[in-house]
Simulated assay, not measured.
Amino acid sequence: DFRNEQIEWLDKTSREVNADSIVFQHIPVDEIYELLEKVPKGTKGAEPAYGTRKGEYYRRKDGIKFMGKYGETPAAMPRECGEFEQLKKQGDVFAVYCGHDHYDSFIGTVDGIDLGYCPGAGYNTYGIEQREVRVFEFDENDVRNYKTYTVSYGDVCKKPLAEPFKTYIFSIAPCCTPQLPMFGVKVLALLAAIAVFFVLLAKVLGKWTSIGALLGVLTGTVIYFGGAIIYNIVTRKRLIERYRNERGN
Rank of each mutant, 00 (worst) to 15 (best):
Q6R: 07
T13D: 15
L115H: 04
V199L: 12
K166C: 08
P178V: 03
V222I: 12
I229D: 12
E246P: 01
D62V: 10
G116Y: 04
G227D: 01
F94A: 07
V110A: 01
A19Y: 12
A195T: 15
F106Y: 03
S21D: 08
A195P: 11
E80G: 10
K237C: 07
Y123Q: 13
P28L: 02
R242E: 11
Q179I: 05
D62Q: 13
A173W: 11
Y103R: 06
L87D: 01
L87Q: 07
I169S: 04
E241Y: 09
G206H: 06
Q179M: 07
Y146P: 01
R131Q: 06
Y70K: 08
Y58P: 01
I107W: 02
K159V: 12
V96N: 02
C118V: 10
I169M: 11
V199D: 08
L218H: 07
Y126S: 10
N141H: 12
G91H: 01
T109S: 09
G120M: 07
G68E: 05
E132I: 07
K159H: 14
P178R: 04
Y117W: 07
C175L: 15
F106V: 03
Y153M: 11
L239A: 08
Y168F: 15
I229W: 12
G226W: 09
R238V: 10
C176W: 05
D142S: 02
Y33N: 06
Y149A: 07
I7L: 08
F66E: 00
Q179F: 03
D62F: 11
E37V: 02
C157L: 14
E72L: 02
Y58F: 14
T235L: 13
A192N: 15
D142T: 00
V96Q: 01
D139C: 03
C157F: 10
V196S: 15
Q25T: 09
A195N: 15
G212T: 07
I223G: 08
R244Q: 08
H102V: 01
E37G: 10
E37N: 06
I233S: 15
